[in-house]
């Protein structure tokens, strides 16, 4: 089965180790959640997989369908089928969502092949409708002046349009009220299927009420301390992170 495999991954920033041997296997078709306290290395894991240049991988590997992606550029990883939904999506002033996504999809087409524009807009509007996004969004600059909820919806819109094989959702629930959370969760659930593996990073259990994971992993101090099924999240909710930290110690 095709997987995104993280093998004993060690990474540091400015010489400071953050990831201290993370191992995880996310098969296509499954949703894995990573939970953990602040500073546990969850977001670092997401950025390292995506290829952020501030982080240095000191050992270990990340394999997408058996192929190491660590030597690949950020954009190449994306074109290979990896997607990162940002915790804090960046503003891109003056670049409309429609043009941005068009360029991103165009980058996936073979050289010389032009995007089918009519088809593109049909798909874009369909996905926007699903996420309850007004069509005027297409001409707005990417994330500029967006509310927290709008930014997160825009991330899921991009995910829907780019059709990744593996998606990492970094704190997609942060900054959302319950209504926005439901819309975003519905958007993600609509994309679930046998061709997509999802790594869901979250601090709170509440997201997992709406996007029910197949597996839950608890991360602290740069390591996965415990893995289990969705009930692990509930247990964490009741007992807090200290329980895991203590039992690990």
């Amino acid at each position: 089965m095709p997987t995104l495999e993280i093998k004993d991954l060690h990474a540091s920033i400015n010489g400071q180790p953050i990831l201290k041997g993370v191992s995880l296997i996310i098969p296509q078709g499954e949703v894995h959640a990573i939970m953990g306290p602040n500073g546990s290395g969850k977001s670092t894991l997401a950025k390292v997989i995506a290829g952020h240049e501030d982080y240095e991988v000191t050992s270990g590997d990340v394999l997408m369908d058996g192929e190491s992606i660590l030597e690949m550029e950020v954009d190449e990883r994306s074109r290979k089928g990896l997607f990162l939904a940002f915790q804090y999506p960046m503003e891109v002033p003056g670049v409309s969502i429609a043009n941005f996504l068009r360029a991103a999809i165009q980058s996936r087409l073979p050289e010389g092949k032009e995007l089918e524009v009519t088809e593109y807009y049909q798909q874009l509007y369909r996905e926007m409708d699903r996420l309850g996004m007004d069509r005027s969004f297409t001409s707005r600059s990417v994330n500029e002046g967006f509310s927290g909820g709008e930014k997160k919806r825009n991330e899921i819109l991009q995910m829907a349009m780019l059709k990744p094989r593996y998606a990492i959702l970094d704190e997609t629930d942060s900054g959302l009220d319950i209504d926005a959370l439901k819309i975003v969760a519905n958007g993600v659930n609509a994309l679930r299927g046998p061709d997509l593996g999802i790594l869901l990073i979250t601090h709170y259990q509440r997201l997992l009420d709406h996007i029910v994971p197949d597996n839950v992993h608890v991360m602290a101090n740069g390591r996965i301390l415990r893995s289990g099924n969705k009930d692990l999240a509930l247990e964490l909710e009741q007992k807090g992170y200290d329980w895991i930290l203590e039992s690990a110690a």
């Binding site: 954009d75 074109r79 980058s107």
Partner: peptide, 8 residues
């Protein structure tokens, strides 16, 4: 980084 992470 954001743009590149979209494949550009």
């Amino acid at each position: 980084f954001y743009l590149k992470s979209r494949g550009l």
